[in-house]
Design a protein around this nucleic acid. Structure first.
Length: 448
RNA sequence: GGUCCGGUGGCAGAGUGGUGAUGCAGCGGACUGCAAAUCCGCGAAUGUGGGUUCGAUUCCCGCCCGGACCUCCA
């Protein structure tokens, strides 16, 4: 059997994927902090991981896919305060929207979707262990991770302790022993959400919730941990430090899969630059499957510069695939993913390579090969494509009654060779957002 | 400033030490009342200067350009 190879951020090279337990692959993806609508960057992350999960499910009998929801966060607190509501009331909408948007992208839901608010006991237990192990200390109501206590700190993200000090922000809190020390627990004033702890009423720091949730649901060591590459430091560096120091002997995640950032007009899409594209808005412009396809047209470890032109092109490419499928309407789906698609995917999720193979299958299907269409459908299952029928794709949601009237009027005009009238009616149909296509013996229509 | 990544045809985007995938766009043709779609064909690229090699787009070094992380971010 061909083996799956993945680029591991930890070792900075491609590695053959070797499961800890082939009977159950365990994967964790850093999910959203829920205070706003998801942006297109969240979408790339989820779509890429979705393909990885679908691929793993083809290779192994069971995959446990965990994607957390971070619902404790200072931005959430700020919103709650502004609106005078509870944090649950703030996060409720964003969580629902997140689910809706990801479903629109045909991303499968994770097997488990743990929330930080449900894991306070686990979080507190890890912090207690870190204090007991001498890796954390209490200072002015805070609990801090002592970077100096961990000789491996910085290795993951390729940073030396000196750099970390040099790069630390200028206003280092006075109670920190080292500039790089980070917060595990911080006190909450009475007006802020808080939980009782051995260190008083407070709330967890940013990174600790992932250490707690991944351990609880996947165990001390698990196979794959994913996220955007902006999480490599500090988030993942700190997760590793927390988990490995709290549980000596732990390796935490085996393979780290990070996708590159999404650019808009050549610049990183980010909160601070204010140039981020809200996924929901992008989904207004094109079908979710086209957005999904756009996100897989470049390799996950390359930057992807989003543009409306690219989105249109993605839609046009999908049109061609759906045409090939339409040619074999009630055809079967191959039981196996075609090798031409599987091979590039097994090579570190080379989705552009897989797409090239899809085009070859579409060519063959259009030339009349039913087998190629069946293979195309099978390939769609691992890539999360072709979720619609060709009919739904080309003609979903149109006013069928009005269309039928116009088409029959136009057919009559054509029959009497009144092409002026035929073209007038065609213009009217196109104003409905459709494209008319004539064939010997009839006409057909599809969405622009 | 430190660390890291990348520069492939008009655009998007793979692979590869030995004649440079794939898609979109463009051009010519077939088909069509005209289109659309489909099919056939065509043109078009490896930032730059060195090095290693029989041979480099691929490996190494310099330079130029772009991007990311070092601060909340997927």
């Amino acid at each position: 059997m061909t083996q799956l190879t993945l680029y591991n951020t930890r070792t900075r090279r491609k590695e053959v994927f070797t499961p800890l337990d082939p009977a159950n692959i365990r994967a964790y993806l850093c999910g959203p902090t829920v205070y706003d609508r998801a942006h297109l960057g969240n979408a790339r992350n989820v779509v890429i991981f979705d393909i990885l999960i679908r691929l793993l499910r083809r290779l192994y009998p069971r995959v446990t896919y965990v994607r957390n929801i971070t619902d404790i966060d200072d931005k959430i607190n700020t919103r709650a305060k502004e609106r005078g509501v509870s944090i649950e009331q703030v996060t409720e909408g964003p969580i629902r929207w997140y689910h809706e948007d990801m479903a629109a992208l045909h991303a499968l839901p994770p097997d488990l979707e743990p929330r930080a608010t449900d894991h306070l006991p686990e979080i507190i237990a890890i912090i207690e262990k870190l204090i007991a192990n001498g890796h954390a200390y209490v200072a002015e109501g805070h609990v801090l991770f002592a970077v100096a206590s961990n000789p491996d700190y910085g290795k993951f993200s390729g940073r030396s302790p000196d750099e970390l000090i040099a790069g630390a922000r200028v206003d280092v809190a006075p109670y920190k022993r080292d500039a790089g020390d980070f917060v595990l627990w911080k006190p909450s004033s009475p007006d802020l959400p808080g939980w009782e702890s051995p260190w008083g009423r407070g709330r967890p720091g940013w990174h600790i919730e992932c250490s707690a949730m991944s351990r609880k649901h996947l165990g001390q060591d698990f196979d794959i941990h994913g996220g955007g590459d902006d999480l490599i430091f500090p988030h993942h560096e700190n997760e590793i430090a927390q988990s490995c120091c709290a549980f000596p002997g732990s390796h935490f995640a085996n393979i780290w899969v990070h996708n590159r950032m999404l650019l808009v007009n050549g610049e990183k899409m980010s909160k601070s630059l204010g140039n981020f594209l809200v996924l929901h808005d992008v989904l207004e412009k094109a079908p979710g499957e086209a957005v999904r396809f756009l996100l897989m047209r470049s390799h996950y470890r390359s930057t992807l510069d989003f543009s409306d032109a690219g989105l249109k092109e993605a839609k046009a490419e999908l049109d061609r695939f759906y045409r090939a499928l339409e040619k074999h309407k009630d055809g079967a789906t191959s039981p196996e993913i075609p090798q031409s698609v599987m091979t590039p995917l097994l090579d570190d999720l080379n989705t552009p390579g897989a797409i090239a193979a899809l085009h070859a299958l579409a060519d063959a299907a259009l030339a009349g090969e039913a087998r190629a269409a069946a293979d195309l459908r099978a390939a769609g299952q691992v890539l999360g494509l072709f979720n619609a029928t060709p009919d739904e794709w080309f003609r979903g949601g149109i006013d069928q009654y009005k269309l039928d009237m116009l088409l029959s009027d136009r057919a009559a005009a054509k029959q009497r060779k009144d092409y002026t009238e035929a073209d007038r009616i065609r213009a009217e149909i196109e104003a409905m957002g459709l494209i008319v296509e004539d064939f010997p013996g009839g006409s057909s229509v599809r969405l622009k």
